[in-house]
């Protein structure tokens, strides 16, 4: 499965498309890490627990999007976009969407 966030896949031709595919997930870290991150907030710097959380969420959203594309018979997704919202405090919500295509 090839993913791009541009219109095309260089070196290949899009022959068929299947419309939008999307994957979303919402994840949280346990309260201990939330408290530690709150403390880290005082001195600043990278909140590794939350970086990790966002990475996990992104990976899961992308893998769900890929699953959906696969079930439609696509072999690539072009113009992938990410979107996020703060639906719950302390939880990270990630949405990935793109256009499922078949390339040759």
């Amino acid at each position: 499965m090839i993913l791009t966030n541009i219109e095309t896949i260089p070196g290949k031709t899009i022959v068929e498309h299947f419309g939008l595919v999307s994957g979303n997930t919402i994840r949280a870290k346990h309260i201990g890490k939330d408290i530690l991150a709150g403390l880290k907030n005082i001195v600043g710097g990278e909140l590794t627990a939350y970086t990790e959380l966002l990475q996990e969420a992104r990976e899961e959203a992308v893998s769900r999007m890929k699953q959906q594309a696969q079930s439609l018979g696509a072999n690539a997704i072009v113009n992938v976009r990410f979107s996020t919202s703060s639906v719950a405090q302390g939880a990270s919500e990630l949405y990935a969407y793109g256009t499922a295509v078949r390339v040759e």
Partner: peptide
Amino acid sequence: LAGLRIIFGGRVTAYESLIDRARREAI
């Protein structure tokens, strides 16, 4: 349920359908 899940961490499954429904409805 989501409040409890946020305490423990992990996938907040309670919210998944909410977000899924909202986006599909919008499209």
